[in-house]
Each structure stands twice: as C-alpha cells, then as structure tokens.
C-alpha cells in the first residue's frame, strides 16, 4: 500500500497539469472557433499560427 503515497500525488499532479493546460487554452482564446479549427486542418494553405487574438475589451 506504500505505493499509494506516490501514485496518488502523481495522479493528482497529472490531473492538475491538464487543468492548467485547459486554463491556458481558455485564456488564449483557443475555443473561439472550434468549427473553423476542425476544418482548417484540411486546407492545404500553410497556416502555422493561431488566429491573431482580438483586442481585449
């Protein structure tokens, strides 16, 4: 059972990393155009950067 002392913090930490990634994606407005992003992957245009963020109001 000693392994739990390591595994539980590890799993919590990994979950937390996921949460931080989600918060970061939210903050950088990556959920503004889910449909467009899904379609953009199909275009042959070279598109290496995300949408220029709209000015914060």
């Amino acid at each position: 059972m000693q392994i739990l002392a390591i595994l539980i913090p590890v799993s919590l930490f990994l979950g937390f990393v996921g949460l931080v990634a989600f918060v970061w994606a939210m903050r950088t407005r990556q959920f503004e155009d889910p449909q467009g992003d899904a379609s953009r992957i199909l275009t042959t245009d070279y598109d290496d950067k995300p949408a220029q963020s709209a000015p914060d109001a």
Binding site: E32, P34, Q35, G36, A51, Q52, A54
Partner: peptide
Amino acid sequence: RSARVNLTLKRVSVE
C-alpha cells in the same frame, strides 16, 4: 493585411 474566417460564428474579420 490579414483576413481570418471564424466558421463557428460565420464571420470574417479583416485588417
């Protein structure tokens, strides 16, 4: 200068 379509909102914003 630049144009970006937002398909979710069916809009294009243009600079």
